[in-house]
Amino acid sequence: MSALTQSRKRMKIWRYWPLYLMMLPGLAYMVLNNYLPMFGLSIAFKDIDYRKGIWASDWIGFRNFEFLFKTEDAFIITRNTLLYNGAFIVLGLGIAVVIAILLNEIRNKFAARLYQSLIILPFLISIILVSYLVYAMLSIDTGFVNKTLLPMLGIDSISWYSEPKYWPYILTFIHLWKGAGYSCIVFLAAIIGIDPEYYEAARLDGASKWMQIRTITLPMITPVITMLALLGVGRIFYSDFGLFYQVPMNSGALYETTNVIDTYVFRGLLQLGDVGMSSAAGFYQSIVGFILVLGANAIVRKFNKENALF
């Protein structure tokens, strides 16, 4: 009996061999590019001595991790990282969905295309250039805001780079500005992929635009939204280094609201150049993201199995 099911199972797998063959190049690449290097995570637990070589260096347990937790900054950097990324996930997705829906509504094809090309522009420039542009806006002496905008409104100039309280808004804004055009394309592709017959039927039933969006568009793109949200959760302990380092110009006065795990690690190890400690930081970020995403995925699964990632 059991031999029978087993052979049937084998038969079943055999039937799918072309599919497995299709996946082969991709999986091979992942093994090479992603899984093989993961053994480097062991570096996080080692005291690297190049005379011995990496693999023969001494194991030192969690000593490389200590610098992440030992200071009073540990709380600040963790808090900042989580809050920023949380805001980025929620607002980023929300705004991208809204833009995608609006773009899809626009009937004038030329205009739609033009808007689409324009809002992706910020994605095309490097974060270093973004930091220059932000500086052009916010510089104390020569910035556009202090020199032109604030005087017009009759407000005194503000020394932006030493006032931490503005930066949560500035950084969130820049992040959205830079990324929204890009991520809305994903949603646009999903929306365009929706079968028009659904809308046809809805219109015949007299559903308003708003109703159509709520009952057709949004549910149809929920899998994509969930996927992006879950991926965001998985990377919640990482942050866009350029955004938090280059854009605030590494200004010490702003650390309270701009210091995140990545920048902390970078600054702390600039002089030491310790591979073990930087691997430890990466390991910590990955583990936390992994646990969170497993949890989030489990919750999603509970509500709707189809939407879960795995």
Binding site: L36, M38, I43, G234, G282
Partner: peptide, 14 residues
């Protein structure tokens, strides 16, 4: 693969 990566050094070695 999206959560864990070996980081720069091991990837470089591969």
């Amino acid at each position: 693969t999206m959560l864990f990566n070996g980081g720069l050094v091991p990837t470089y070695m591969v």
